[in-house]
């Protein structure tokens, strides 16, 4: 170091200027490029995925849960639904895919980030030069990989056991694509946002699971959409899960099944609008509320 470092520094920081002064007489090595957020995001994503599959209980729970529920609901309610050309079992295949997408994104992020915050993993990361974006990119990779796997497993089960047909037209595949991407993104952002609510890692599960359960009841996951009281459905329609379910039904159920919907149509435009709004709103919510430390540690 040089005299530049010994000089009394200004009280206020000059992020780049102070940095330059600090290294002026040094080796110059600090001028080297810092690793980028995208590259570190990929690195973190690979690590998150490796860690996820090392926790066998979590893997089994994550993937088996929707399958068990699909089996239960689709076996209990299997009648052909009037004038829809589809069975209740097939309805539940689409519901459980939606629920699986929300569980791998909203539920798993909401709980795991709260625990990482509690166990000071986030604090440690904050102490390194890792850019915050890399952390979130890593989570997105994890959610995408587990979400795709979960959906694939449920679809495989649904097509072989309950006779659901894969989309037959390019248009339906395209719809499947955007419903999946918008739905999983919106739910993931909501999950990141809710992770800041629990006061500790221990309470995270209850804080996250309760709203998820309620949403599943009022969004047409467990209960057929034409059976839920209107006011409940209205509440549900403010959240992404209802639209995720509806979007998936439009992909996998015959056109006649649109008669089940409260509007009597698939409302693709509105589905895209609400899911898209949740992506933006969720991002805003995360940026405004995300905490790297537990409350009280500030």
């Amino acid at each position: 170091m040089t005299a530049a470092d010994a000089a009394p520094p200004a009280a206020q920081p000059e992020p780049d200027g102070a940095d330059g002064a600090g290294t002026a007489g040094g080796t110059g090595s600090d001028r080297e490029r810092l690793p980028g957020a995208w590259q570190l995001g990929l690195l973190r994503g690979a690590m998150e995925i490796r860690l996820f599959f090392r926790q066998r209980e979590q893997v089994v729970f994550t993937f088996a849960f929707p399958i068990v529920f699909l089996f239960l609901f689709a076996s209990i309610f299997s009648d052909t639904m009037k004038n829809t050309g589809t069975t209740a079992s097939q309805y539940y295949v689409t519901s459980m895919i939606a629920s699986g997408i929300m569980s791998t994104s909203f539920q798993s992020l909401g709980i795991s980030i709260a625990i990482e915050r509690d166990e000071k993993v986030l604090r440690r990361l904050r102490g390194t030069p890792m850019p915050p974006a890399a952390y979130f990119l890593g989570k997105i990779w994890l959610v995408l990989v587990t979400g795709v796997l979960e959906t694939a497993v449920l679809l495989a089960f649904g097509t072989t056991v309950y006779g659901v047909d894969l989309p037959s037209t390019a248009g339906r595949w395209l719809t499947f694509g955007w419903v999946f991407v918008l739905g999983i993104t919106g739910c993931a952002l909501l999950g990141i946002a809710i992770s800041s609510v629990p006061r500790s890692g221990r309470s995270a599960t209850s804080v996250v699971v309760l709203p998820f359960l309620v949403l599943q009841f009022i969004s047409g996951v467990y209960i057929l959409i034409d059976t839920i009281p209107n006011w409940m459905l209205t509440v549900g329609s403010f959240f992404p899960l209802k639209w995720l379910c509806q979007g998936l039904r439009s992909v996998f159920l015959p056109q006649a099944a649109a008669a089940l919907e409260p509007a009597g149509a698939w409302e693709s435009g509105r589905t895209a609008l609400v899911l898209g709004a949740w992506c933006l709103g969720g991002l805003l919510l995360c940026l405004l509320t995300f905490r790297w430390k537990n409350r009280g540690d500030a």
Binding site: D5, P9, D16, L34, P129
Partner: peptide, 17 residues
């Protein structure tokens, strides 16, 4: 002042040191 900068507004280069 820590290494010539205010730690209340750390930048990535400072954190690296």
């Amino acid at each position: 002042s820590v290494l010539g900068a205010d730690p209340a507004a750390p930048d990535r280069r400072w954190k690296a040191r």
